[in-house]
C-alpha cells in the first residue's frame, strides 16, 4: 500500500476506535443520568416510576408550605390544578421560591407518592416561567392562577 494511504488507514482506525470508546462512555453515562419530566397529574395517575430519579414541575399550591421548626426540612405541594404532588426537601430554597409561583423539583418518588426532592429550581426572574411548568399547565388546561382556560 502507498505509505500515505496506509497512514490514512491507521488514522481512520485510530479515530474509529477512539470514537467507539467515547460512544461507549456516552451510552453508559446516559443510562443512569437522564431523568424524565412528569406533570403532577401524571404522578397522581401513577404514571411516574417509583424509586427512579424524575422531575416534577408545577405551581406551588397556596397555603401548602410547611416548614419544620428545628431543621431545614420543608414540605409543600406542586399542582397543575388537576392534581397535587407532595414534595419534601431538606435544604435551602432558591430566592424566588414562593407559594403561587412555578417551580421544578427533581428527586425520587417514594412508596407513598411523595417526591423526595434533592434539588428545587424556581424561576430566576419575575417574568420567566420554566418551560416544563408551562407544559404541565398546558396539558392540564389551567392558567397560572388556577383558572380553567
Amino acid at each position: 500500500m502507498h505509505p500515505v494511504r496506509k497512514q490514512r488507514l491507521y488514522l481512520v482506525l485510530f479515530i474509529a476506535l477512539f470514537s467507539s470508546i467515547a460512544i461507549g462512555l456516552v451510552v453508559y453515562a446516559l443510562r443512569g443520568n437522564i431523568n424524565l419530566f412528569y406533570p403532577p397529574a401524571d404522578v397522581a395517575a401513577g404514571l411516574a416510576p417509583v424509586g427512579q430519579p424524575i422531575r416534577v414541575g408545577g405551581m406551588v399550591l397556596e397555603n401548602s408550605i410547611d416548614r419544620a421548626e428545628d431543621s431545614l426540612a420543608i414540605r409543600f405541594k406542586l399542582t397543575d390544578y388537576e392534581a397535587n404532588v407532595e414534595v419534601v426537601y431538606v435544604g435551602i430554597l432558591p430566592d424566588l421560591f414562593a407559594e403561587g409561583q412555578g417551580a421544578v423539583a427533581s428527586g425520587v418518588l417514594n412508596e407513598d407518592g411523595v417526591l423526595e426532592a434533592t434539588e428545587i429550581l424556581a424561576k430566576h426572574d419575575e417574568n420567566y416561567m420554566p418551560p416544563e411548568v408551562t407544559h404541565a399547565l398546558e396539558s392540564s388546561g389551567y392558567d397560572e392562577k388556577g383558572n380553567a382556560k
Binding site: 456516552v26 443512569g32 443520568n33 422531575r55
Partner: peptide, 18 residues
Amino acid sequence: MGKVSVGPPYFNAVFVPL
C-alpha cells in the same frame, strides 16, 4: 418522547476520562 434532562453526572462521566 417526553421531557428529559441530562444532568451533570452524564457530563462528568464522559468529560473527565477524556
